[in-house]
Computed example of a mutant assay.
Amino acid sequence: MTQTVLHIDSSIRAEGSVSRALSQKITSRFEGATVLRRDLADGVPLIDGAWIGANFTPAADRTDEQKAVLATSDAMVAELQAADVIVIGTPIYNFSVTAAMKAWIDLVARAGVTFQYSETGPKGLLTGKRAIIAIASGGTPVDSEIDFAGRYIRHIMGFIGITDVEFVKADSLGNGGDEKIAEANAQVDKIAA
C-alpha cells in the first residue's frame, strides 16, 4: 500500500535553511510515497473573528461566505487526514515556532474535526499517524527549558491524536554547526520508511 506523506516547511528562508534541507531529506526516505507539499512561507492566513464565527457554526448551517473563510483551514485539515506520515521542517525563532507554524496550528486544531472534548478531557481524532519533525536552531537547545518550539509541537501533535512523534535535531548551530548538521543527517539516514 502506498503511503501518503505530508511535507510541511515553515522556515522563511528559501535558501540555506537547515530545517528545509533536513525535512526534504526525510521526505525522500519514503520512496514511492504520494507526497503532499505545504510551504507555510508562502503565506498562512491568521484566524480572526469571521473565522471563529464560521468554525463554530455547524457545518450544515454555514453560509457560502463562512465556507470560503474556512477553505484554507479545511484544505490543511484534509491534508493531515490524508497523510500517513507528517514531516515538518521548522526552525526555532525567538525560542518558539515561526509565526507561520503557529498560524497553521491555529487553523488545524479544530474542535470536532481534529480533536473533540470528552468527559475525560480532549481526545485527538488523527490517530494512527506518524510525525517526524526536523528542527533547527541557532542557539536554543531542543528539549531545554528555553525550548518552546519542540515541546509545543510534540504537545500539539498529541493533542490532535498523533503520538508517534520523532525529532531530528540540528540545534545550537551557532556552536559547532557543521558537526550538528552531520549528526542530524546521520539520524535521518536511520529513519525507517
Rank of each mutant, 00 (worst) to 15 (best):
T90W: 08
V77R: 12
Q3S: 13
L126K: 09
Q24D: 13
V44W: 06
L22P: 01
A100G: 05
D39R: 09
L80K: 12
T63M: 06
R13D: 08
V18K: 02
A83S: 12
K180I: 07
M76V: 02
K102M: 08
I146Y: 03
V44H: 07
V142N: 07
A68V: 04
I162M: 01
A192P: 00
A50V: 10
M157P: 02
A99F: 02
G174T: 06
L6E: 00
E179K: 11
G174A: 07
L126F: 15
I191D: 11
A193K: 10
E31A: 13
I132M: 14
L22D: 02
A184I: 07
G124S: 14
L70G: 01
L173Q: 07
D189V: 02
A83D: 14
F159K: 11
P91V: 10
E79S: 03
D64P: 15
I47Y: 07
L46E: 11
A184Q: 09
S118D: 10
E145W: 12
D61N: 14
I47G: 04
S96Y: 09
Y152Q: 11
V77K: 13
A82P: 14
K180E: 03
R13P: 08
A111V: 12
L80C: 15
L46Q: 12
F167E: 04
S96I: 04
A83E: 11
R20G: 03
F56D: 12
R13W: 13
I156W: 09
S137H: 00
T114Q: 09
S118V: 08
H7K: 10
I132Y: 06
G121K: 15
D64Q: 11
I92Y: 00
A71V: 02
Q3K: 15
A111I: 09
S73H: 03
A136D: 08
W51L: 01
G53I: 06
G174Q: 10
T72M: 10
L40M: 09
D42F: 10
A170C: 13
K169L: 03
D64K: 10
R151K: 14
L80I: 05
E119T: 15
K102R: 12
Y93M: 06
P122W: 03
A192S: 08
